[in-house]
């Protein structure tokens, strides 16, 4: 049983981001299931307001859906801060297993309690560091570096703890600030470093993989509850179909973006396994510091599940 529904999905990113491919695939799936009755209308580039604002609009039943990174939402659900913890996942496979498994379900329950239905975990990608000062091969290289971070306590502490001068700044100002050297460095997934042209004003890129903050495909619970069970099931299933396409495209694009960054003459390096272990060790104080506000049970649960996977 399907009704005509216009589902407005807002995004902070632009239409050419892999989320666009995901939405396309999701729409195709919805068309098949609902006979064209469930229609997604995407609004790109923050046209319907920032991610946090859009999420609040979902909670009050004003807007249907948003694709947002988990980081801005910690003020609504502190447990989401777990995904901001530095060096939590070591590779994408680990992240998929945790997010699509029991732990992801556990977080979904918490989100439902604050009026949000998470249809699926999409991918934003591992965040990496770019800078204009020096190659970063060990944590000591962060010393004194002015790094732009999101306005989020875990990120601020992560970089301050490594000796950097973490500066929160609006995304729209980052390019100019890098170009004029107001800041030395920024951290984002490769795709963003590429599409936002940050590589044009940076010299070094380090594959730090310091955070994997997922995209959440959130739906307003107030609106979701008014949908028929068929509609709800179709949305959940098709969000998963979209997720798989989006993850595939973003994986390919990450490689392409990295090639483009290299071709532009940037020096790209990775942390050696020993340095990775050291930096992870060094960052453990951040886990301790934020344990209480995220919830010790949440942090323990994710670490336990990861230990299980890594066995």
């Amino acid at each position: 049983e399907f009704n005509d529904r216009n589902i407005r999905v807002s995004n902070g990113i632009n239409a050419d981001h892999p989320v666009g491919n995901g939405i396309e695939a999701m729409q195709k799936c919805l068309d098949e299931k609902s006979g064209g009755k469930l229609k997604l209308t995407a609004f790109w580039g923050g046209a319907l307001g920032g991610d946090l604002q859009a999420t609040q609009a979902l909670r009050s039943g004003v807007q249907e859906a948003v694709v947002t990174s988990s980081s801005p939402l910690v003020g609504i659900e502190p447990a989401l801060g777990v995904f901001d913890l530095p060096f939590l996942f070591s590779n994408a496979e680990e992240a998929y297993k945790v997010l699509d498994g029991d732990f992801g379900e556990r977080m979904n329950k918490k989100l439902e309690a604050v009026g949000l239905v998470n249809l699926a975990y999409w991918e934003n990608g591992f965040r990496n560091l770019s800078n204009s000062v020096r190659p970063v091969t060990k944590w000591e290289d962060f010393e004194g570096m002015k790094v732009r971070v999101m306005q989020n306590n875990v990120f601020l502490d992560t970089f301050q703890n490594l000796g950097a001068n973490a500066t929160p700044m609006a995304f729209g100002e980052v390019f100019s600030a890098l170009e004029t050297k107001t800041i030395d460095a920024q951290e984002n997934p490769y795709v963003t470093i590429d599409t936002s042209k940050f590589f044009e004003v940076q010299k070094y890129v380090t594959e730090t993989n310091h955070a994997y903050t997922p995209f959440l495909f959130l739906f307003s619970k107030a609106i979701f509850d008014t949908y028929t069970p068929d509609e709800q099931a179709a949305l959940r299933e098709c969000a998963t179909v979209g997720r798989d396409v989006e993850r595939q495209v973003i994986g390919d694009l990450n490689k392409k973006s990295l090639e483009k960054i290299k071709a532009a003459g940037l020096e790209v390096n990775a942390l050696s396994p020993e340095e990775q272990a050291r930096i992870r060790e060094k960052s453990m104080v951040v886990y301790q510091k934020h344990m209480d506000e995220i919830g010790a049970d949440v942090v323990d649960a994710v670490l336990a599940e990861l230990a299980e996977i890594r066995k």
Binding site: G49, G50, A57, S60, G61, A170, G172
Partner: peptide
């Protein structure tokens, strides 16, 4: 057909809550 007073309240204040 989407009258909701919260659209007014939320967008009004979120507008001023911008560092730029």
């Amino acid at each position: 057909g989407m009258f909701n007073t919260q659209i007014i309240a939320q967008n009004m204040i979120a507008g001023a809550d911008t560092f730029t």
